[in-house]
Design a protein around this nucleic acid. Structure first.
Lengths: 150, 150
DNA sequence: CGTCTTTGAATTGTGCGCAATATTATTGCA
DNA sequence: TGCAATAATATTGCGCACAATTCAAAGACG
């Protein structure tokens, strides 16, 4: 019963700190997104679509959110079902599916505009710290996603 | 079509930076955990159990991982099915279920001991940065979990 | 002692994530 | 032109997360 393997202690795991913080932050969005009838991944998808200047393919959205069609196809169908987005095969390449916002989907942008500033205080940090954290986390994500050799 | 609402841009969302980094880090563990036949949440549960000096209840584990019985009950049943853990009602309080590791579960600890150091290089940061990050992330998790008033 | 409330876990239902596979369209190239 | 290889999306299956509900046991209290 070799006790104390510090490298296996929960409190020392960066992965667990990330996992906990991510879930806690998503919980923070819960009540606000419920007002819009969106789940958190649906909200992220709407952010991508609001930011786009032209129709995006499923793959485009997936590249931005790091999600594949196994996740996005049913999610986008739900957005379509509630009238926020349209899905249509690209006539120029029938393999692709182009996603566009409906009027309702576009209109929701204004209602969502106040959400980030309502959630931010919950983090309990200042804007500069948040920006640093975003930068550091983005670098870590890049590093994890594109490992230098094996 | 009011373009540019910076507060809604994906790249400015701390929540998305956390969400992406968390998923990327879990992906980093994937191949190593597959060798043990564990999923990531099962691995976290094993970390908790390896660290414990006495049997834990479902609630104890949930408090450490921020998970409820809706997630843990089926997960623990799976650990039981593969012979890593035992589940038994607490005779002193039949509402509680006590979780203990089997011999096999204890033995797996040695095999897992090398995992963190094999994953760490993937983050692309040094140990001091990782420790700072863990501290900062733990603080925002606490802040999100225990909001100061409404 | 009876019953009302609280507590801990299990159950149910929905929506992700993600691996693996299937399906259809396009491309490359002999 | 014909056909194999590739690409984009969809489908299937499993295991989380989490809200909502149920169920059984323990406490509280008249």
């Amino acid at each position: 019963m070799a006790d104390r393997l510090p490298q296996l202690e929960l409190a020392n795991q960066l992965c667990f700190a990330l996992y906990s913080a991510s879930r806690a932050s998503i919980r923070g969005y819960g009540p606000l997104l419920a007002e819009l009838g969106l789940t958190y991944p649906q909200y992220l998808t709407m952010l991508v679509l609001w930011e786009a200047t032209e129709p995006l393919t499923v793959g485009d959205i997936g590249a931005r959110l790091h999600l594949d069609s196994g996740t996005l196809t049913p999610l986008l169908k739900r957005l379509e079902d509630v009238g926020l987005a349209d899905r249509a095969r690209d006539p120029e390449d029938e393999r692709r599916v182009l996603i566009t916002l409906t009027e309702t989907g576009q209109a929701m942008r204004a209602k969502a505009a106040g959400i980030p500033e309502r959630v931010f205080p919950l983090y309990g940090i200042d804007v500069a710290s948040a920006q640093r954290l975003i930068r550091d986390l983005t670098e870590i994500t890049n590093s994890l996603t594109h490992p230098r050799q094996g």
